[in-house]
Every structure is written in structure tokens, then in C-alpha cells.
């Protein structure tokens, strides 16, 4: 645990694998930039790895004022203990006021280990971050400029705002896909701080015997238009309506978990809590009831069109355009109309 330190920097752990930055910490950079500006402090990214200096330059383009670069042959592959040890030491050396991690598999493995060692608080899986004041109920003490860590809990049924008033750093993991990717700015200037790392083999208790990664078949996050289908399509054959509408709009096909479980389409296309979180310009929900776990992945879309024959379907609660009707009639009408217009 470190003391409350108003001059402390805002940090983002810039997770990389095989020399490639993960999307989630990059998405975090624009929000973190905003937090640092509000607080009037510097934004720093922290990169660990071996031969990853070129990533430091990229992170400056994404908004960092400073990049702490920790390179060591034993940091080549991610491991909990070695990464936790290096970041723990950096936190104690530089006393940042905020440390943010992507809520990726590695982020959610690493951040709690560091929080426990630092005896600091950690908020899980945030969907938004803000700066605000908090008054303690008991003694009416006002804590200025705290990090408001906003997160769903209770299976997505409530939204909690969590704070760490007096034990810092304020740490949080942030869910993928909830913040927009920043545009890199080649003209930005920043400083790269090379940190000395001491690690021994015993800091790496795990032996990674093998690893299999596969590329996702679709990149839903990059799609400007998404057409998503649910169980209401009825069959894999009929799910072709979703593909057709997506194709004529130049969009990507997506689905609910129910549709994936029915094998209408591959899991890579699933949107929601246990799938991908998306925020396209247009999201068309076809035959989707709108369960909370599905909404968790799409409610941030700029415009939402919902087609459902049940007027009480929860999806209509988040839709901008509600079409109460049979998808088998409405979707062909939409395809026809789009073809005519373009």
C-alpha cells in the first residue's frame, strides 16, 4: 500500500504478447489520457517484455507522456509471478495514484496478485472510469478527485461505483471493448524510461509446456455495422437471412449465445458477456430477446434496430428503431430496400 499521493501519475499496464499490444490496454489509453488531464498529472504506460522497445514509441503515439520499459529475457513470455514482481517494484519506486489493467485473461490473473502484495484495492472488470468527490457518511470527510470505478456486478443486474479513498494506488481492471480505440498521433512526443530488472529463474515457477492460439474468424470489434441473429431465426438455414443482410450492408454477422448453442453460427461471432463487446455505428438485432448478458455486449452501439414479434421483448428497451413484426418478412424488406438505395 502506498500513501495518497496527489502528484502521482496515471498508469496503464500495456499488456503485450509476442511483441503485439493487446487491444484492451490500447483502448484504455484515451480514457486514461482524459483522467490524467483532469488530474493535471502525467500518463505513463508500463511495458514488460524482451525486445519490445518499438512498442514504447507506439504507446506515446496513443497518448502516453512516459513509458516505463522493463526488458529482460525472463520477461519474454507472460508469467504471473515474474510480471507481478516487476510491477510491484515499479509501483513502490514511482508511487502512481492510479494503475489500470485490461480485464483480459492475463490482466485478471496478474492485477489481483499485485493488489494483494501491495495491499491496495482492486476493482474488477470496469466499464467506465471517472474522477469525482466522495463524502464519507460517518465523519463527513470529503475526499476530492477520487477514481470512480464503475462496474457491473450481480450478473450484470446492478452497476456499482467503487472507490478507494485512502489506500492507494487506485487500481482497476477494465473490460475489453467498452472504450473507443484512440487514433495514433505520430507527432506526439514522450519519454522512454528504461527500468533495470533483476529476476532469477525461481521467479518463474511455471513451466509453459505448450500453447495454442488461434486467430478469431471475425473481428467484430472492427465492424462498423453488425447484424446479429438470435434463437428467433429458428434454424441454421434461416440464419442465412442474417448473413444476407450483413453482406448487403457491408457489415459483420453476429449472434446471441442461444444461436451459438443451437449451432447456427460459430462462437467467434457471439456478442455479450461471454462473447465480444462491440460498439458499432449500427447494430441490427434480429430475433433476439435482449437478455442482460447480451445487452452487456452491445448496448453501447451508436444506433440499434430491433426486430422482434414480441412487443415486450427487453431488446426494445435499448433500441432506437423498434420493429414489432415477423423477422421473416421484415429482413427481406430491409435487404430489398438497401439494394435499391445503393
Amino acid at each position: 500500500m502506498i500513501e495518497v499521493n496527489r502528484k502521482g501519475e496515471v498508469w496503464v499496464f500495456a499488456e503485450q504478447h509476442d511483441g503485439r499490444l493487446e487491444d484492451t490496454p490500447v483502448e484504455l489509453m484515451s480514457k486514461a489520457r482524459h483522467l490524467a488531464d483532469t488530474l493535471g498529472v502525467k500518463l505513463a504506460a508500463v511495458v514488460l517484455g524482451d525486445g519490445v522497445k518499438d512498442l514504447a514509441t507506439k504507446l506515446i503515439q496513443y497518448g502516453a507522456d512516459k513509458v516505463y520499459l522493463a526488458e529482460h529475457p525472463l520477461l519474454r513470455a507472460y508469467q504471473t509471478n515474474s510480471y507481478a514482481k516487476v510491477i510491484f517494484d515499479l509501483i513502490h519506486k514511482h508511487t502512481p495514484q492510479i494503475v489500470l489493467y485490461g480485464a483480459t485473461i492475463a490482466g485478471r490473473d496478474l492485477a489481483p496478485r499485485i493488489a494483494s502484495a501491495t495491499r491496495a484495492g482492486l476493482t474488477a472488470d470496469c466499464t467506465d472510469l471517472q474522477i469525482g468527490d466522495h463524502t464519507t457518511a460517518r465523519d463527513k470527510k470529503v475526499h476530492k478527485n477520487l477514481l470512480f470505478q464503475i462496474r457491473p456486478a450481480f450478473g450484470g443486474n446492478i452497476i456499482a461505483t467503487i472507490i478507494n479513498p485512502d489506500r492507494w494506488p487506485q487500481m482497476a481492471t477494465v473490460r475489453e471493448g467498452v472504450m473507443p480505440m484512440p487514433e495514433p498521433d505520430g507527432k506526439r512526443k514522450g519519454r522512454i524510461v528504461e527500468e533495470e530488472v533483476t529476476l532469477a529463474q525461481h521467479d518463474l515457477p511455471l513451466e509453459i509446456l505448450e500453447e495454442h492460439k488461434r486467430e478469431k474468424k471475425v473481428d467484430l470489434k472492427a465492424a462498423r455495422i453488425i447484424v446479429a441473429g438470435g434463437a428467433g431465426l429458428g434454424s441454421k438455414d434461416n440464419f442465412k437471412l442474417v448473413w444476407d443482410l450483413a453482406n448487403c450492408l457491408g457489415g459483420a454477422p453476429a449472434a446471441t449465445r442461444a444461436a451459438v448453442d443451437l449451432s447456427f453460427i460459430d462462437h467467434d461471432h457471439q456478442v455479450g458477456q461471454t462473447g465480444t463487446t462491440v460498439r458499432p455505428s449500427l447494430y441490427i438485432a434480429v430475433g433476439i430477446s435482449g437478455a442482460i448478458q447480451h445487452q452487456a455486449g452491445m448496448s453501447q452501439s451508436q444506433k440499434i434496430v430491433a426486430i422482434n414479434n414480441d412487443p415486450d421483448a427487453p431488446i426494445f428497451g435499448v433500441a432506437h428503431y423498434k420493429i414489432i413484426g415477423d423477422l421473416n418478412e421484415v429482413v427481406p424488406m430491409m435487404i430489398k430496400s438497401v439494394r435499391e438505395k445503393s
Partner: peptide, 11 residues
């Protein structure tokens, strides 16, 4: 417990 709940809203 360093984390405190500032507020809770239902969805």
C-alpha cells in the same frame, strides 16, 4: 477493505 462502494444503481 480498501475498496468502498460509492453508490449502486440497478440496471
Amino acid at each position: 477493505s480498501p475498496t468502498k462502494v460509492h453508490r449502486i444503481q440497478s440496471v
